[in-house]
């Protein structure tokens, strides 16, 4: 069980929560994730990356976008509410050392898990070039925080409402072509963005690390639901990952697998939203009658 200490809405459907979880806060390292479940009987387990942690305060930070039923339910919880099931920290931590120049690319909500990694890389003496991208101005998150720990920060939006009007792959390509070629790229964001970042860096032979967020059930290597093709091998994201060499990941298969239950999920989500709308209507009616 874990109490919500703080809740903040970062944009229309992106939320930040600080959760009371002393053990996870103490143990976690950059790159790891947690699994949570809201209804202990009928809920589903979803993985979320740990965006930050404060070992002394015993808290962890998660940042999530409402994309379906469980994230929607989560967004409706408030400060003081409990999340009944919270497990972690899971997955392998990011390998941090001095590589030289590292480009950190964050797409949308992916900036959240990128932040602690960039922070750790900076602390290890790397030159950090950060590229953050979002669909539109409202969805740009953690810009100030990223600026603080980056030697250079490039912001772009798909629609040009803020920063450069470009996809992240454009500035990424430019950086790869610089005289001072980067030593490594870390890309975190939607699968399609990570796929194209990997394609962008491939011709330059720059090692590109991606962080995968597949469907998961247990998160401890027991079910194989999170498996992906990496090179010629099958890997379990929850125990072998979540980070892999982007040049080896079969993104197309991963994206298909992410959509395995999309119809059922949509159906259940719609059902849930209908229920909420109905309840609202009822309470409004009751108010009017009073």
């Amino acid at each position: 069980m874990s109490k919500i200490i703080k809740k903040e809405q970062l944009s229309e459907n992106v939320f930040l929560m600080i959760l009371d979880s002393p053990l996870i806060a103490k143990e976690r390292k950059a790159g790891q994730f947690i699994i949570l479940q809201i209804d202990p009987e009928y809920g589903e387990r979803i993985p979320l990356t740990i965006a930050d942690a404060d070992a002394e305060a015993g808290t962890i930070t998660i940042i999530f976008q409402v994309v379906g039923l469980t994230t929607d339910m989560l967004s409706r919880l408030n400060e003081g509410d409990d999340i009944p099931i919270l497990v972690g920290p899971l997955g392998k931590p990011t390998h941090i050392e001095k590589f030289g120049t590292v480009v950190c690319v964050g797409g949308g909500i992916g900036v959240a898990p990128l932040h602690p990694i960039a922070q750790a890389l900076k602390a290890a003496g790397n030159k950090v070039i950060t590229i953050i991208g979002a669909r539109t101005k409202e969805l740009v998150i953690l810009e100030d925080e990223m600026r603080k720990i980056s030697d250079e920060l490039i912001v772009c939006t798909d629609d040009g409402t803020y920063g450069r009007k470009a996809l992240v792959t454009e500035p990424l390509k430019e950086v790869c072509e610089r005289k001072e070629k980067p030593d490594m790229v870390i890309a975190i964001g939607p699968p399609i963005m990570m796929k194209f970042c990997s394609e962008t860096t491939r011709p330059y032979g720059i090692f590109t690390q991606v962080s995968l967020n597949t469907i998961m059930v247990d998160g401890t290597g027991m079910c194989g639901g999170c498996r992906v093709n990496v090179g010629n091998e099958v890997k379990f994201v929850c125990v072998d990952g979540p980070e892999f060499d982007g040049h080896l990941v079969d993104f197309d298969n991963m994206m298909m697998r992410l959509n395995a239950f999309v119809d059922i999920e949509k159906e259940k989500y719609k059902c849930y939203l209908d229920q909420i709308a109905e309840a609202k209507l009822k309470s409004q009616k009751a108010e009017v009658e009073q």
Binding site: V217, D218, M222, C223, G224, G225, R227, V228, N229, V234, D250, N253, M256, R257, N259, A260
Partner: peptide, 14 residues
Amino acid sequence: ENLVGVVSANEYLT
């Protein structure tokens, strides 16, 4: 083996 619709019994039963 990684097609959508291939599951381990562990996952299915869990």
